[in-house]
Design a protein around this nucleic acid. Sequence first.
DNA 1: CGCGATTTTGAGCCATGTCAATCGGAGTGG
DNA 2: CCACTCCGATTGACATGGCTCAAAATCGCG
Lengths: 241, 241
Amino acid sequence: MWQAGEGRSGWVEEALKSAGLVLARTAKLDGASADRIERLVGSVEHYPAGTFLNGFEGSPKWLLSGWVCEMRILPDARRQIFGFDLPGDMVLPQSRAGQRPCSHVALTRIDCADVERMLRSAGAPEDHELLNRAVAASLAAAQERRYDHIVRLGQYSSSERLVSLLLELRDRLEPLGMVAADSFRLPLTQEQLADTLGLSLIHVHRTLKALRSQGLVEMRLGRVTLLKPAKLDQMAQRGLC
Amino acid sequence: MWQAGEGRSGWVEEALKSAGLVLARTAKLDGASADRIERLVGSVEHYPAGTFLNGFEGSPKWLLSGWVCEMRILPDARRQIFGFDLPGDMVLPQSRAGQRPCSHVALTRIDCADVERMLRSAGAPEDHELLNRAVAASLAAAQERRYDHIVRLGQYSSSERLVSLLLELRDRLEPLGMVAADSFRLPLTQEQLADTLGLSLIHVHRTLKALRSQGLVEMRLGRVTLLKPAKLDQMAQRGLC
DNA sequence: CGCGATTTTGAGCCATGTCAATCGGAGTGG
DNA sequence: CCACTCCGATTGACATGGCTCAAAATCGCG
């Protein structure tokens, strides 16, 4: 089901670095602390796109590269995506006993580190505390985003929904160095966007087309470019309280 | 701004008892543990309907009676209600520094106990642990409900939204002894329901009217009665994952 | 080159939103 | 006790955003 890689090739270093950057930002760690956490990563686990990350019960994974989504499938096959985990985020497959929580699914090939293993290999108690703080901060940030998502679904029009999601993703990918000139890879199909935004596939497409024809965004080959970020910002009603 | 009552009149005992019941259920405490927490309640704070509960920063309140909602107001006056806190729930006014979180507002007159004060007056370390566990469990349950709410807003039709909300509230009020024969007080205006469900006031009214005309619910004078709970259950797609 | 997945288009319908007005009850002041 | 006001519930007419169905075009890949 998965393989653990031992050596650290170039891309692992790369992934670690970007993951450390997010950690530094969300958990408000200084660079040295983030470095210390990076060093705790022992072996890296790899999973193919489509992997269900449940059943891990308990131990969070530190996502080093790739995208994961949280979603729920309804009995009648409707599907709701709650949000996305990006490199540097902690993924907590919280399948709480018998409840109806959400599944975590890898949207791309992913690389991650098991936090429990990192805790075990951590020597100094500061490392433990640092890691725990990082996990807590990452989950708190995800929680915060869930409020935004509720507002998106409850109050925003289709274009506001789409634009605000794109802006959220840009803002999260930026510190990872994965955004160049408001352009970034977006490994999501229009159907997945629809399931995220509570719209039909077809309407997502139409909305996208409208944005494109207004010269606001460009979107092709799994890559988006925000052409008029200021205008988009304003469209998305990014209201502080 | 608020008054602290000292003596425990009958209704305080009443409120304590129902709050203890919720605690026992959500935090999975046995009766004795819930009793111990009840005894920690020192003075009870009272706030009128409409009070904004922010600015309490940090210390949760244990809600003993009344309803509180979490909401966000957008710059253009749109409003989204994230959920409700009922007696027995912990209210955490998490106004995290400058972010755009949510405000907690009392929908009715409320009575609550300050958890920090309870911690201070707690003698035994078990009491501390018990209280912390209760707070964590209550917040976890609220979090769980937020997932449900995202599905409601993203996937459900207007009648599914309305019905699933009513069922959620019934299920939460039931252990408090506040539901008799699927009938309970609902201190919400149609406008507040609309802001919760991401619908317009008028459409909430229409949907309600339809449910009424089908003999599924009755709703007047701030009181709802679910006439055909089984049918409603089925309507609400209460799908386990 | 052919196949499945994804994107794109068009036509038509329905759910939901907007606007405008009325109605009823609760409180308030005279 | 009445007139007034405010708030919430109610109703109707109408507009439209977003959905469904159906089909074609395109892309990615073996």
